[in-house]
Simulated scan of single mutants.
Amino acid sequence: MNQATRRTVTFSLLALLAACGKPQSKFRAYNGPAVTQVVVNKGARKLYLLNGSTVLKSYDVGLGNVPVGHKQFEGDGKTPEGLYFIDRFNPRSQYHLSVGVSYPNENDTALAQALGREPGGDIFIHGWGPDGNRLAPTKKDWTAGCIAIKDDEIEEVYAMLRPGVPIVINP
């Protein structure tokens, strides 16, 4: 093997090793059609990302630890139902990544106050993170009211969504 060939092989191997050792970022790029709506069907445990009426992606989800019924107040363990909006992104979530849902709205706040309670908040679509990796394999609905998907799936969702996208959460 001549000097030039040996050098080429050496640099190729070094480049390959460097690529193998590089940690993969949890932040992905997305160049496809815009997500115009998120739909969650609680009964079917499904989340859909839509462009118009076309389903771009679908995911199996876990819900609050009391999966039936609309969230009424802080600590009830229920996932809200109704029309909300994507309102924030948390890149440092304890659940890998998370995307905020605009709960509570005015009606949610009024209902909770009528019950003499606080409506709660911090409802997110989030990954499993360490808690979910421990709980989700044996308990489908384990969150305090959030919508949970696998860590690699929240990476896709996080890249695809934008603030202001409506999310409809059905019973």
Rank of each mutant, 00 (worst) to 15 (best):
A4V: 03
V9C: 03
V9T: 13
F11V: 13
F11N: 14
F11C: 11
L14Y: 13
A18M: 15
F27Q: 00
P33A: 13
P33H: 00
V35N: 07
V40Y: 01
V40L: 11
V40D: 04
N41T: 10
R45V: 09
Y48N: 02
L50F: 14
L50Q: 08
L50D: 04
T54N: 06
L56A: 05
D60G: 09
G62R: 01
L63H: 05
P67H: 10
G69A: 08
H70M: 11
K71W: 06
Q72P: 00
F73N: 01
E74D: 13
E74I: 11
E74A: 13
F85P: 03
D87A: 06
R88I: 04
R88E: 02
F89H: 00
N90L: 01
N90T: 02
S93L: 05
Y95N: 03
V99G: 01
A112G: 12
Q113A: 14
G116Q: 07
G116H: 09
F124D: 07
H126N: 11
G127Q: 05
W128Y: 14
P130N: 08
P130A: 03
D131R: 05
N133V: 07
L135C: 00
L135G: 02
T138M: 12
W142L: 07
W142V: 09
T143V: 02
C146S: 04
I147M: 01
A148C: 05
I154W: 05
V157Y: 02
V157K: 02
Y158V: 09
P163N: 13
G164S: 08
